[in-house]
Amino acid sequence: MSAHILLTTLALALVAGPLGCFVVWRRMAYFGDGLAHSALLGVAIGLVIGVSNQIGMMAIAIIFALSLIWLRAKRVLATDTLLGILAHAALSLGVVAMTLLGAGDIEVHDYLLGSLDAVTQDMAVWVIAGSGLSLGLLMRLWPGLILMTTSEDLAHAEGVHIVRYEFALMVLMGVVVAASIQLVGILLITSLLIIPASTARLFARSPEAMAIGGSAIASLCMLIGLPLAQNFQLATGPVIVCVSVASFMLVLMARLATRKG
């Protein structure tokens, strides 16, 4: 496997650990799915105005997060309803636009399930820079985010600006989802965030341990899954998810076994 693919995947795995924890703690899984679905529209917009896929996807992710916050503040429809409307609107627009622009079924398929061929050196630079920045920002906001996740009331009273922190978290997710979509695919991106963090939850006793454990497990799954996908000519997303689920089951069984003993 070439160096730029290896670095790209490890950078993604590192940021997936802590970010995945917030997806689990704050129940943002459906939000992540929605972001991922909207990414296809970002790709289409990128094609139309001639910027890179990543910029198109990040722009759409930020618009997506802002629309959600704005609609949610109206307090008429539940968050999951709003997500359903936004996500599927963006996905459908994306598919229609991609087809009109002449993208073939194969290209759309690659976006849905991920492909190693998509990881060019140009893209690697984008993904590594994006993951690095996200990880840095996440570490800077960490104490406030943890307090806010424990108790929003308390965080608010102690001066944490909840709306800003929540928006930052949404944008971070947008960046990471946009960065990893071509590798893991729109359909499976959320599981890359959720499964390693959930596996780490089985043994972690602090939020930090869960985040670091999540990063380590995600890295391991990438390192095992990518060569498998390459050797057997499989879509990367499903292979990585299979490996992640296997690691989750293993840790779960180990946990149950030690508890009995």
């Binding site: 703690w25 996740t149 424990t150 108790s151 102690e158 944490v160 602090s206 939020p207 869960m210």
Partner: peptide
């Protein structure tokens, strides 16, 4: 300097957090 005690705090079981860590987070 105000110390604030909220009505209650509901801890999500997916968040591993010891008392000591809670008391030192963000202060």
């Amino acid at each position: 300097k105000i110390g604030y005690v909220p009505q209650r705090v509901t801890i999500d079981p997916s968040l591993p957090m010891t008392v000591q860590r809670f008391l030192t987070v963000n202060n």
